[in-house]
């Protein structure tokens, strides 16, 4: 264990949705600059973890604690968590008709800068940055004018999420299956986007089903989430093991009834 202060510390987290317990005692510690991959079967609670961390309505924490940069994360409103540097790239990004991407991004960046006491960015500078971000994720600049995710294809939505990450420069990025539904070229673009943002003061939680993303984004740690708990942790080689053997060998008992899961 190094002595660096943790960025994110989750201790014995229990959380539920609509009275149903989904996260059942989860511990995780992330230091600045680390990349953690979370893998696990469908319904394990991976997306739920992202929602709980970002404070989505309806997701309630039953017990446990989460700190971000030493601050109690669970005590904050959703937008304050975002302003504190937490970013979630959604597995299924929602459409907001009529609200242009650029307008939305500028408002987000403004809100976050203001919360951090930074000066507002000028529209011209912002536009320049946004265009560069588009280029980096290989989205035509015209997408800035389109409604947020409005009529985007699945892959475009994912890249749009990544573009937002590039502009918001968060401390902790949670990417929820940002690779699913992407062809190999798009996958590389996503990986390059993430790699370009890797730095000593930025950490990632990469939720994925596939080892192939981890060929491009080398994780420092790999965790297996199953039935609301981390059942195994290891280094990058764990992902290869999972690829070869699936998840079944990790589960003491078989996953609960599929219908429930």
């Amino acid at each position: 264990m190094s002595n660096t202060k943790s960025l994110l510390t989750i201790k014995d987290l229990h959380a539920s949705v609509e009275e149903k317990q989904i996260i059942k005692g989860l511990d995780l510690d992330i230091k600045p600059g680390e990349v953690h991959a979370i893998m696990g079967p469908n319904g394990a609670g991976k997306s739920t973890l992202g929602y709980v961390l970002s404070g989505r309505d309806g997701y309630s924490v039953d017990s446990g604690s989460v700190t971000l940069d030493g601050e109690d994360l669970l005590d904050m409103e959703t937008e304050d968590r975002a302003r504190a540097g937490l970013f979630l790239a959604f597995q299924y990004p929602v459409e907001i008709p009529g609200v242009s991407n650029l307008e939305f991004l500028k408002a987000s960046v403004d809100a976050q800068r203001q919360a951090r006491g930074e000066d507002a960015i000028t529209s011209a500078d912002f536009l320049k940055e946004a265009k560069a971000a588009c280029k980096q994720v290989n989205l035509p600049v015209a997408f800035l004018k389109r409604g947020v995710n409005e009529g985007f294809s699945g892959g475009e939505k994912k890249r749009n999420e990544l573009m937002q990450m590039l502009l918001l420069k968060p401390k902790l990025c949670i990417l929820d299956e940002t690779d699913s539904g992407l062809d190999i070229d798009a996958l590389q673009i996503v990986a390059e986007g993430v790699n370009s943002q890797r730095s000593a003061d930025r950490s990632f939680i990469v939720v994925t089903h596939y080892q192939r993303l981890l060929d491009y984004i080398k994780p420092d740690f790999v965790h297996v989430l199953s039935d609301g708990k981390i059942v195994k942790s290891g280094d990058a080689s764990l992902a290869l093991e999972l690829e070869a053997q699936g998840y079944a060998w990790l589960q003491k008992e078989p996953v609960e009834d599929e219908l429930e899961g």
């Binding site: 979630l88 959604f90 990004p93 929602v94």
Partner: peptide
């Protein structure tokens, strides 16, 4: 929708 509100707030908007 709740989803739209959540997305906006996750990006830091009040």
């Amino acid at each position: 929708s709740d989803e739209q509100m959540f997305l906006c707030r996750q990006r830091g908007l009040d």
